[in-house]
Computed example of a mutant assay.
Amino acid sequence: MHSLTLNSDNRAEIAAALAGDRWIVACLCAAWCGTCESYRATFDELAARHPDKVFVWIDIEDHADIVGDLDVENFPTLLIQHHELVAFFGTMLPDAGVAHRLVLAQSGQSDAELAELARSSEERRRWQADCNLRTLMRNAQA
């Protein structure tokens, strides 16, 4: 499966895909960003390598009503989540190997390990409160 691209016409479809049991890997980008533009093919290749996960591409300016409050410091930024636990949120080197290893490392953890990590630092506790993509999508649709 290739990555999904959030647009104004498919929000309900994306929200339904995120509500399932699969891992979520979201790339937060901007249309004007040259690095993001070149990273798109890499992100699609990563999605093809992990067909058991939902990959979604989100333009943070086009969808500021959903992700506008997230602290995106640089591009590309990845958000990796399982169920209601945000496992990773941060800037990613635009390198397929690094992204692949990150996805493997995060998805290799049990829910108990993820829950423990989610409580392990102030930054990770903020991720749970602020970066939960499922919650952000639900709130935008309400």
Rank of each mutant, 00 (worst) to 15 (best):
L4N: 10
L117E: 15
E84Y: 10
H83P: 00
V72K: 06
A30H: 07
D62W: 01
T77P: 04
F55N: 02
L136P: 07
T35Y: 05
H82C: 05
V103C: 12
H50N: 14
V103E: 12
D44V: 09
R101T: 02
F89G: 02
S121K: 08
S110D: 11
L102Q: 05
G97S: 13
D9G: 04
D65K: 06
V54R: 02
T135L: 15
E61H: 10
A12L: 03
E73I: 04
E45K: 15
N139T: 04
D71R: 15
A140G: 06
L85C: 10
R126L: 03
S121N: 12
W32I: 05
A96V: 06
N132T: 02
E116S: 09
D69F: 00
W32C: 02
Q109W: 02
H82K: 15
A87H: 07
L70P: 12
E122A: 14
A87E: 02
D21L: 01
H63M: 01
F88K: 11
A140L: 02
D21N: 09
G108P: 04
M92A: 08
I14K: 03
D69Y: 10
N10G: 08
P76N: 08
E73D: 07
H2A: 07
S8I: 13
R22P: 10
R134E: 11
M92L: 05
G68I: 03
K53V: 04
A99W: 03
L93G: 08
Q81D: 08
D95G: 01
D130Y: 06
H63W: 03
N132S: 13
D62M: 14
G90T: 12
F88I: 01
V86E: 13
A64C: 06
L133D: 11
I66H: 03
A99R: 01
S38A: 13
A15F: 03
H50Y: 11
A31F: 10
L28K: 05
A99S: 13
V103K: 01
R124D: 12
L46K: 03
S120M: 10
A41F: 03
A140E: 03
Q109Y: 00
H50C: 09
V98H: 14
C27E: 15
A105C: 02
T91H: 03
A87V: 00
F89Q: 08
L79Y: 10
L102F: 09
E37K: 14
R119A: 13
A140D: 09
P94L: 10
G20W: 07
E84M: 05
F88M: 00
E84T: 13
R125N: 00
L46H: 03
L93R: 13
L78A: 09
S110N: 04
L79A: 10
L114K: 02
S120D: 14
V72Q: 05
C29V: 07
T77Y: 04
W127M: 08
L102M: 15
G90A: 04
S121V: 07
R138P: 00
R49C: 09
L104A: 07
G108K: 06
V86C: 07
Q81K: 02
E84N: 12
T35G: 13
F55S: 04
G20S: 12
T35C: 09
A129I: 14
D44Q: 08
R125P: 08
D95T: 00
A140R: 02
T42V: 13
A142C: 12
F89C: 07
H2P: 01
R101C: 05
E37M: 10
E73C: 01
L117Y: 06
S110K: 04
